[in-house]
Design a protein around this nucleic acid. Structure first.
Lengths: 141, 141
DNA sequence: AGTTTAATGCAACTCATTTGCATATGTCAA
DNA sequence: TTGACATATGCAAATGAGTTGCATTAAACT
């Protein structure tokens, strides 16, 4: 269970381990797909933990600053986050039901690195990229 | 000038060509980078055309529905649009100054198509993808 | 147990975008 | 041309995600 690592890391840096924070880390640890503030609210409620919305937003920013979660902006109007511990991957987003699932993209990784090298030589330093696929999932067809 | 084509297309379908609509199409035609509602507002003002904000938003949705512009959601909190007539490309987004520039990505296109074929066989039908690069532009370093 | 200060709750706020409705203006027919 | 009619617009109010100020609560250290 790697939320334990995250907790140890935060404790070492003098941050407090509150119930909200601990359960939130466990939720990210258990989820293989990105979560938005609303998803997290529901997950917390399901576990019997009541947390104010503003606390959730603050906590997400905090965890991002600590490098424990990564933000993910999709073509929706909500910001998603996922565990930073997941191996590099991209996403399949269903335009119909909104489901978001990870995809391994081994075919594109080395071409992407090649492209990034080329672009870096033009003066633009790439630090990050987003690659998401939109369409219709098996269940919605 | 391809905004003329767009205008002809809209007229054929019985839509009215208002000043706002015509100038907006010209603006998209002349811009090689994506524009958000604010950019468009400024561009219209610069041309001496006063258009209400809600009209801009409605017009952008309209043009999108007509297939004349494509939406582009970046890691900012604003929605961008660009002409649908531009050849396939992706973007370099500067985290520092917010500039957005197109990139040709020939290295990745065929690996992407291969990946899409593979994914389509799993039951998820991909119709679209987004690929954007974030980092620091030459001017900001 | 008491102290300190990070974390929380609450309510009010911001900012992009949307919507309802009354008015104005393209466009088409007479 | 002019008038009729529906589309497009302006305005103001609403929405919805996310943020912020401030008083209170509660981890964690002594």
């Amino acid at each position: 269970m790697s939320s334990a690592n995250a907790i140890a890391q935060l404790q070492n840096q003098g941050h407090r381990i509150t119930t909200a924070r601990r359960v939130l880390l466990e939720i990210f640890d258990a989820s293989r797909r990105p979560l938005n503030a609303q998803d997290i609210n529901q997950a917390l409620t399901r576990q019997g933990v009541k947390v104010n919305t503003s606390t959730i937003y603050r906590e997400l920013q905090f965890l991002q600053k600590q490098g424990l979660v990564n933000p993910l902006q999709l073509s929706t109007n909500q910001l998603y986050y996922e565990s930073a511990q997941l191996p590099h991957h991209h996403h399949l987003v269903c335009d119909s039901c909104g489901s978001i699932d990870p995809v391994e993209c081994h075919e594109v990784e080395s071409p992407l690195r090649r492209l990034e090298t080329r672009v870096n030589q033009t003066g633009f330093t790439i630090t990050n990229h987003t690659l998401e696929f939109y369409g219709t999932c098996a269940g919605c067809r």
